[in-house]
Amino acid sequence: MATQAQGAEEGGLVFHPMDQFIVSPLGGDGVVSWFTFTNAALWTGLAVLAVFAILVLGTSKRAVVPGRMQSVAELAYGFVYKMVEDICGKEGVKYFPYIMTLFMFIVCANFLGLLPTAFTPTSHFAVTVVLAMAVFLTVTILGFVKNGSAFLGLFWVASAPLALRPVLAIIELISYFVRPVSHSIRLAGNVMAGHAVIKVFAGFAAIAVISPVSVVAITAMYGLEVLVSFIQAYVFTILTCVYLKDALHPGH
């Protein structure tokens, strides 16, 4: 209510840039329990459908000379497969389905979120933290299972002078545990900031004089957000590959 009043004082300008991120139940306004079908659930489900449409329906013809959708599917496959193979090596290829799952979910959720009035699951820390923690825990456990205590060599920089090694070990340890934090906040932060900025510009469009500038600014931001949607999915995936490489081949 305070915001409403303040907005009214400023000449009818009402900004609610963060309202688009509110999780609310669809059909009724009850309490959001863990299984309630909310807007978050809807757009998460639509992301799954988009993945299904691109990768399954798109390739249903199994054409040797691909059509448009099949090209997209093959491009996505080749893109992630090459990333995994280049960074993690041959042993990393068996984790390719997991990484492809992450990439396809993030990229579809990001792009669906760019539709007007859409909800963007990847703008929520609840989602990105789960993704990042899943990667972090998997990689850590995998590192110890594959290498045993040799995995701790990741923190003991053998190429550095002996006196420096304990200091470096502390730094490495901190940076290792900061990984899931930066990993998750980078994605959600980028997506959220872009959407909020667009909303702010949209708020300015209420003033007739500014509205052309506002429309141009929204268009420009939207273009940037299209780019960010892909780049952040790419960054999340490539960092996952890098962490996986550390687990498979510890040591620098």
């Binding site: 309630t36 909310t38 609840a126």
Partner: peptide, 8 residues
């Protein structure tokens, strides 16, 4: 969070 994590 619980809702989002479940659906995720």
């Amino acid at each position: 969070w619980g809702n989002q994590i479940f659906w995720l």
